[in-house]
């Protein structure tokens, strides 16, 4: 057995941070591989939504232009990646509960890296969900009517928004500490938030209070941005009067920036000062 205390390799703070970030990302990816149910459910749910909405509501909802499939997909994308980000919240709370966070905090590693690894894990799951949803969408008749560059920008915007939202959820996970509460509350908040928007039906047809809410809803801006960038905006549907509805892409970019600027430092601070 080694008798001397093992010393760290020489390295800069940045290279150590990157290494720690990679190790914790790897840990979260291993979880996806070892617990395939997580991935399975995060993939089956969007497929189910695409099929249910297309075939159950699609017949009843009349959308001008390319039809409901094309209108629907941006909504499904947005809803799925937003829900996908809640996983960071419950997983942080679970790790706290299991004591593995205490283990990490007794190691000479970067605390921020634990959060980076966690949110990266969500990004990977969300990227895979996006691929599967796009495949399913294609099969039911969804088509991209924009340039490749716009298409890539649309995908990037969805994933970035979700990534930023993962940081919000990671902070909540550290603050609330109960994976069950995180799961239940995020369902209660996010389900109405994604439904009272333009994700599944045009918001102009909603009763006035709901319509106003839907126009200001950040999820609507995300959906509208994706719809514009994928060329799926039905002809003759006004976006609404709200500034956010008029400028959806700017709204989403501001939203991403605000979430990251507030919740990245807040989560890191919270992680470093955790105490029971």
């Amino acid at each position: 057995m080694t008798s001397a205390t093992l010393q760290p390799l020489a390295g800069s703070a940045i290279s150590r941070f990157l290494s720690d970030g990679w190790v914790t990302t790897w840990r979260n990816l291993m979880k996806i591989i070892r617990v395939p149910e997580i991935l399975l459910f995060s993939l089956i749910q969007p497929i189910m939504f695409v099929l249910l909405f297309t075939y159950v509501f699609g017949a009843a909802i009349d959308i001008p232009g390319d039809g409901y499939e094309s209108f629907l997909m941006a909504g499904i994308f947005a809803q799925t990646v937003v829900f996908g980000s809640t996983y960071s919240g419950s997983a942080m709370a679970q790790d706290l509960k299991d004591g593995i966070i205490d283990r990490f905090r007794t190691l000479p590693m970067s605390g921020a890296a634990v959060l980076v690894g966690r949110t990266n894990g969500d990004l990977v799951i969300n990227s895979l969900s996006m691929l599967v949803m796009m495949g399913t969408g294609f099969l039911v008749g969804w088509r991209v009517n924009s340039s490749p560059l716009e298409f890539v920008a649309g995908v990037a915007l969805l994933l970035l928004f979700a990534y930023a939202f993962s940081w919000v959820m990671a902070f909540l996970g550290l603050a609330v500490r109960s994976p069950e509460i995180i799961n239940n509350v995020s369902f209660l908040v996010l389900f109405p938030l994604t439904f009272i928007s333009n994700a599944f039906v045009p918001s102009e047809n909603l009763p006035t209070p709901l319509r106003v809410f839907a126009e200001w809803n950040p999820v609507s801006a995300l959906v509208q941005s994706a719809r514009e960038l994928f060329g799926n905006v039905p002809p003759g549907t006004p976006p609404g009067d709200a500034w956010t509805a008029q400028n959806p892409i700017a709204t989403v970019i501001i939203g991403i920036a605000v979430m990251l600027l507030i919740f990245v430092p807040l989560s890191i601070k919270r992680f470093q000062t955790l105490s029971r």
Binding site: R27, V35, G99, R103, T106
Partner: peptide
Amino acid sequence: VRRMIGASGQYAAVDENL
């Protein structure tokens, strides 16, 4: 301090999936 200590808690702080 973290470079010179080892700590083991009353609950086993290991990653279940690894």
